[in-house]
Design a binder for these strands. Sequence first.
DNA 1: CACAAAATACCACGTTCGTGCGATTGTTAA
DNA 2: TTAACAATCGCACGAACGTGGTATTTTGTG
Lengths: 228, 228
Amino acid sequence: MKKKRTKPKAEIIPDSKNKINIWLVEDNISYRKTLTGLINRSPGLYCPQAFATCEETILMLQTEPFPNVILLDIGLPGMSGIEGIEKFKEITPNTHVLILTVYDDNDKVFNAICAGASGYLLKDSSPEKIVSSIEEVLAGGAPMNMQIARKVLKMFSRFTPKKKDYGLTEREKEILQFLLTGLTKQQIAEKLFISFHTVNTHLKNIYNKLHVNTRSGAISKVFRENII
Amino acid sequence: MKKKRTKPKAEIIPDSKNKINIWLVEDNISYRKTLTGLINRSPGLYCPQAFATCEETILMLQTEPFPNVILLDIGLPGMSGIEGIEKFKEITPNTHVLILTVYDDNDKVFNAICAGASGYLLKDSSPEKIVSSIEEVLAGGAPMNMQIARKVLKMFSRFTPKKKDYGLTEREKEILQFLLTGLTKQQIAEKLFISFHTVNTHLKNIYNKLHVNTRSGAISKVFRENII
DNA sequence: CACAAAATACCACGTTCGTGCGATTGTTAA
DNA sequence: TTAACAATCGCACGAACGTGGTATTTTGTG
């Protein structure tokens, strides 16, 4: 629920008409001013709000119209930027959150993206890069510094479906699927229109192939090793 | 094991000294020629080999020195580009594979990256973008078209640890961990130096909290929803 | 302190599981 | 035509599970 309201401000703020509305969350005062200036000097961009903490930002989201983009630092006093993303996204899911930080460790990058960040920039980015990234975000992109992009791809490939092959047949995989849902042998038999005994046999074979001897072991193996 | 060998060729090939060695895998003849030309006209780049299939490429990898970058199409006759990536990476893990294709569906992108692609370009990319992307790959980046980058981030956020809270206590989580390994109630009891009956009680409570009534259901829920 | 929540413990009963056998049919590759 | 494999079906039995109770002790918080 956006509330449109003209708010008197001491500073000179650019005309908001047809401009991209950008909020800034950055605790370093001088960098914040630099960025605000940079954005407001860019045609088409408009930065009416700048905060030092996520908490303040969240408060303002209660009363002000939602921004198109939030430019967010991660190393903030109080609530971290990562937590901030989640909160922002709960309040206004359509607002893009663009991370601008000094941190480039896997953990921060991973968590930020999982939390819903639309892009991830490092603070050594040039002013031009920052401005173009804001535009890119709105054009449906996901701007990242190249080292970040590489990290992201590497993280991704760690999710590789390794798919060790235990030589399961199609029927066995099918039955395994039903195991995962917590069905009993009898229930599986009914689902597949076969005898209880047949399911029993399949289960025996599955256990043999997976080198387990309980449902629990089988199910855990399926999830941990991305079988099926 | 790289074998350096000067190979007589009918075509005029640029000097390989200090140039980035790029191989091209693309089944469309005219596009292949266009790209080869583009690369060889770029200072610092050098494309001595171009193939129509992964199979040919793999053969050549047996005898020729490994390239720095392989520019790879996905929609190929015979072995698909996705499979190709895996094979290439097995043979020469340090060679970067840069995808250049028309396909932008989640599945292809996901699989390509999981297989180890260093970048993902669409065929509507400008020649300049292609050349700069090759350079970016070698500079440690991961060039992607902006729509691809967005897709990648979105896929990532699907891995979000949602962590629904079912109000499990620490002890209950502990017992849940042992469930995953396939232990019986008695075995869990021994591990924790408590009575079999206590484990039984905990299990009852866990099932209640997770709204399941079998070990299988509990285990599946744990994996699917990232509990614990 | 008081009260709630968590952890502990016990029992009984019917259900389901895992595993030891054996067996028939159909398909597929050698 | 064999041989191998997959899928089907059957039985029996001890072990483990899930669920209904009840009850005591420990821990933590207002």
